[in-house]
Nucleic acid binder design. Sequence first.
DNA 1: ATGTTAATTGAATCGCCGTTCAAAATAGTT
DNA 2: AACTATTTTGAACGGCGATTCAATTAACAT
Lengths: 198, 198
Amino acid sequence: MRRKTGDKERRIAEAAVKVFARDGFHGAKITHIAKEAGVATGSVYLYFHNKESILHHLFDRLWQELHTAFAEVYRADLSARAKVEEIIDRLLDQFEKNPSLALLFVNEQHLLLRDGTGEFMQYYVDFLQLGERIVREGMRSGVFHPDTDARMFTNLVFGGVRQLLHQWARAPRQFPLQSVRSEIKRIILHGLLHRPSA
Amino acid sequence: MRRKTGDKERRIAEAAVKVFARDGFHGAKITHIAKEAGVATGSVYLYFHNKESILHHLFDRLWQELHTAFAEVYRADLSARAKVEEIIDRLLDQFEKNPSLALLFVNEQHLLLRDGTGEFMQYYVDFLQLGERIVREGMRSGVFHPDTDARMFTNLVFGGVRQLLHQWARAPRQFPLQSVRSEIKRIILHGLLHRPSA
DNA sequence: ATGTTAATTGAATCGCCGTTCAAAATAGTT
DNA sequence: AACTATTTTGAACGGCGATTCAATTAACAT
């Protein structure tokens, strides 16, 4: 007998993140992913059914982790405002150590969104609903502006975070993540207008 | 002699918007674009050098129009606040009649952003700079909160608009453009927090 | 040591489209 | 109504790269 050695699946997955991020899903060659992972071309197919399933795998894992983090925040004993802030932080935490993952997230998710299948899809939908719930929670407790549209707000913030994550991944110096964090929170909580007597 | 009749170039471009939006750039077949446009496959190559140049053409035109609209707003005799609101409106106006164009814009721009070439690139960069300038204008006049990061703000809003545009294009009933317009403005100007004495 | 079985390899395969181009069609010209 | 120049056509080509698989390698068992 012979047993699988090492951590080839993980190495292939990590290589795929890099190559998908650099070349885009369709520009990425299986050969390059294999080389980056240090395995033979054919070995990729021992661990993944095909190219697309690698992408599915990556997004499923990513959103699973995000979902866990978000659920934790949601259940925590925090004010709605603190939850909103914390969720933004957790979202950015997920990418802070891995700009390639951020580029993958930002550039390739639409491929999977198109057909609407995949484990990740449910987590994504849940995430948006969870955002809405927190906003409504804050409206009930009187902390958030009473006629906010929770769904629009959640999407607006998610899209904004996505764009800033993209800019950060392309040019970390121009968009330091610390500034991204604080600016997002300031703007979505207080808005752009200046109120002298605030 | 024989003269070109009709408006094949425009028909091909419009067909490409539809097919790219529906199938994605890489999933789109030239054959399908040709059929949608009502021309032969080979005719596509009389009007465009290749598949990618169709995409470039579409984004160049789109951003050129956006740029014109934005420049007009920027020069107008309006308050900074009114300019911010107006730019959001103009951006959404561009897609209001054409959900497919919105999907193209949202899903495929990253392909062209990757290499950073194309006429459209300059317009895109200009657009972000213009947003920053308007925000700084408002900060100088004291209307906007004085320690806003203009670049972060512009990107946050752009990303948010993009996400909502995406949701609208996928489900117009769930995200009516009128609500999108008003909610974006409310949130970015006033923020999420409720101030009882405002 | 030798055998057995599963893992690994990477060159070869094969289907899919973007692209080409020889033939056909047609608008204008004489 | 024949001719010319240009547009249009769509079947065929060719290259690329995802996927396959026969050969090889290496764990583990006996």
